[in-house]
């Protein structure tokens, strides 16, 4: 077993070179390079955490903005509807008033026309009476040869027409 049989001659060299090379590993690699590697990992972890936090903040900001926008949109919609309703009511009132005016005008003209018709009718009736009385007097004088008084003929016609 060389580990034991060569112990006396080699232990010093083994210990010496181990301390040299392990010392190199510890001081150069372990203390020099490993902390840098770990610092890189830490920086990355920190950046990832920061990025996640920023994304989260941006998302909540977007949510808040959307909520605010929705509230505003709702308010504006309500306002718009109120304006529309008001305009509708005003328009309805205006058209009602104009309709009433037009109705009144039409009524007035209809009344006028009816009055005209009534006068025309009574005028025509009077004329018919006159014509009928004349015709009756004429007929009587021709058939009976009797001269009828115009007043009597008129009374007789009135009696015949009005029953």
């Amino acid at each position: 077993m060389p580990q034991i049989s060569q112990l006396a001659e080699t232990y010093a060299s083994q210990v010496f070179w181990l301390l040299i090379f392990f010392g190199f590993i510890f001081f150069v690699i372990g203390r020099g390079m490993v902390p840098k590697v770990m610092a890189t990992v830490e920086a990355r972890d920190k950046q990832i955490a920061a990025d996640l936090a920023a994304a989260e903040a941006a998302r909540s900001a977007a949510n808040a903005e959307e909520d605010a926008w929705r509230v505003q949109a709702n308010a504006q919609r309500g306002e718009a509807q109120a304006v529309i309703a008001k305009a509708k009511a005003e328009a309805a009132k205006a058209s009602e008033a104009r309709l009433a005016q037009a109705q009144a005008r039409i009524d007035a003209r209809v009344g006028e026309a009816e009055a005209q018709i009534a006068t025309a009718r009574s005028g025509a009736l009077k004329e018919i009476e006159q014509v009928a009385a004349d015709a009756a007097a004429d007929i009587v004088s021709r058939l009976a040869g009797v001269k009828v008084d115009a007043k009597a003929a008129q009374a007789a016609v009135k009696e015949a027409l009005n029953g």
């Binding site: 001659e9 080699t10 010093a12 060299s13 083994q14 010496f16 070179w17 090379f21």
Partner: peptide, 9 residues
């Protein structure tokens, strides 16, 4: 002490 550079080293 002998510090020969051995195959181990």
């Amino acid at each position: 002490y002998n510090i020969a550079f051995t195959n181990s080293a």
